[in-house]
């Protein structure tokens, strides 16, 4: 029972991470399409400045919870996806530093350099996370000792790449909508238009990815076994339609929220399909890492659950406060003009 609760929390933590870091990574990756001049770029940095770090802690927590609740899954996932994770790490380091250093350097060339670092450090995590999760959905070559029999290129299969592109697009739309929320005037216009341009591409990739999911993965078997679960599938479909109508209505906060629901429900769709496996083995289902062979002791799961039930609502509370106070429309005065 505790294992199953932790499995759901595990999925939920990753979903929240994608929802939150998704908008800052997404906005970072579309920055070249949105910024015409230095003032625009300043506004873009300003719009994510107070949030990216707090958002990224959800990754640390999701990683930490994988470690604490399912140590074997953590060990196999992180060592198996070694090179992909190292690239993710390097990308996240570069973009974290870019936020800070970009505001401190004073020469034009240095600013341009950090802008490039920012874009690269924002696109890459979305791509890598998408590739990694698509491969997890599909199953990776794990042998009977939990050793990954493959390399980085094993992960770059059509379904994995599809997952990568899907994540980049989900984040890009999410980020554009975030900028629309935070700005007035021309920049707001451009951000909204970009979100509208991304939408049909995203919708097409989304449908294609769902179709490929049926072909490449076993995710649907849980849904076929319990048809009532199919209702969950309606949430992302509803959300993706809602994103379009809310963009058309120019209701930015609501469009952003619908995009957040889309990201969370897409992740949970995959996670529920995985249950009870955390890492299916593509070599032999008997080698899969599941909640039964990877979970921590009951005592650890109980203590961790107590901590999570107390602390996570508090964290959500102050991060909500943070967004409420700081995610206001950016004015010229804020930018020093």
């Amino acid at each position: 029972m505790l294992e199953s609760i932790w499995f759901l929390l595990w999925g939920l933590l990753w979903a929240i991470y994608f929802m939150l870091d998704g908008y800052d990574l997404g906005l970072g990756s579309v920055m070249p399409f949105l910024a015409k001049d230095e003032k625009d770029r300043k506004a873009i940095y300003k719009s994510i400045g107070p949030f990216w770090d707090g958002n990224e802690v959800w990754l640390i927590t999701a990683g930490g919870v994988t470690f604490a609740a399912f140590p074997k899954a953590y060990a196999v996932m992180f060592s198996g996806l070694y090179t992909a994770l190292m690239l993710l790490l390097i990308a996240l380091i570069i973009r974290g530093v870019a936020y800070e250093f970009r505001g401190l350097v004073e020469s034009d060339w240095a600013r341009k350099l950090w802008d490039k670092a920012m874009v690269l450090g924002s696109v890459l995590p979305g791509l890598l996370l998408g590739v990694a999760f698509a491969n997890i959905f599909m199953g990776i070559p794990i042998d009977e000792n939990g050793v990954f029999q493959g390399n980085l290129f094993t992960l770059l299969n059509p379904y994995g790449l599809g997952g990568g592109i899907l994540f980049v697009l989900l984040f890009a739309q999410h980020g554009s909508l975030w900028l629309a929320v935070r700005t007035h005037g021309e920049l707001n216009e451009r951000a909204g238009n970009l979100a509208a341009t991304i939408w049909p591409v995203l919708a097409a990739v989304y449908i294609a990815f769902l179709a490929l999911t049926g072909v490449y993965t076993q995710l649907l078997s849980n849904y076929l076994a319990y048809p009532a679960l199919m209702l969950i599938l309606l949430i992302p479909i509803f959300a993706i339609v809602k994103v379009r109508t809310l963009i058309a209505a120019r209701k930015w906060w609501k469009a952003w929220a619908a995009s957040a629901v889309l990201i969370v429900s897409t992740t949970l769709f995959g996670v529920i399909g995985l249950f009870p496996a955390l890492l299916p083995s593509s070599i032999n289902p008997a080698y899969s890492i599941t909640i039964h062979n990877a979970a921590s002791s009951q005592l650890t799961l109980k203590i961790m659950l107590t901590v999570a039930l107390i602390m996570v609502p508090i964290v959500i509370g102050y991060q909500f406060w943070m967004h409420k106070v700081f995610a206001t429309k950016i004015t010229d005065e804020d930018l020093g003009y």
Binding site: V57, G64, F67, A68, P71, A75, S296, V315, M322, F326
Partner: peptide, 30 residues
């Protein structure tokens, strides 16, 4: 190592993130 001691070691790291690191990062930005 992670597999062998994660039950104890991993939970300490996870608790660190939830009780402290979130607070540190969020309020520094504030």
């Amino acid at each position: 190592y992670s597999e062998y001691v994660g039950d104890i070691f991993g939970s300490l790291l996870a608790i660190e993130a939830t009780v402290a690191f979130f607070m540190e990062s969020t309020f520094l930005a504030a």
